[in-house]
Design a protein around this nucleic acid. Structure first.
Length: 116
DNA sequence: AAGATGACAGTCC
DNA sequence: AGGACTGCCATCT
């Protein structure tokens, strides 16, 4: 899907996938950061919703995306509720009780890294 | 075909 | 300072 001849892919979700796929290994980001990068901080929930729709068909590292609290909110949406934590820990990120430790240090800001 | 759902965050009072 | 409401896109049933 996602069309093959359509060039006007203004889909909000498509942008979300792209940004998420650009997240460097060992780094994490928040829904709000992505939303704000896209210019729609108000649609922060759409970002989270987008993941739900995307991870079903696309290969998006959704495990690197957490909520503003650094909490693994979407862990329950993975193959296993612990998969998200496992993946993050393998990338060097410490997690305690589903919450990322040093979240601020691991935080990846698309606006700064991508320098819109 | 139409309605309901879905991983949050920011702003208002 | 704290609590409650609003905002919004795409996909699924």
């Amino acid at each position: 899907m996602m069309s093959t001849t359509k060039k006007n892919n203004s889909t909000f979700f498509a942008d979300v996938y792209e940004v998420v796929k650009l997240i460097p290994k060992g780094r994490v980001t928040s829904y709000g950061a992505i939303a704000k990068y896209l210019g729609t901080a108000k649609s922060s929930r759409m970002v989270g919703y987008a993941m739900n729709a995307v991870h079903l068909l696309h290969d998006v590292p959704a495990h690197r995306v957490v909520n503003r609290n650094g909490l693994l909110t979407g862990k329950h949406h993975f193959a296993t509720p612990t998969l998200m934590q496992e993946l993050l820990e393998k990338e060097g990120i410490k997690i305690k009780e589903d919450q990322i430790i040093n979240f601020e240090k691991c935080f990846w800001n698309p606006m700064e890294e991508l320098t819109l």
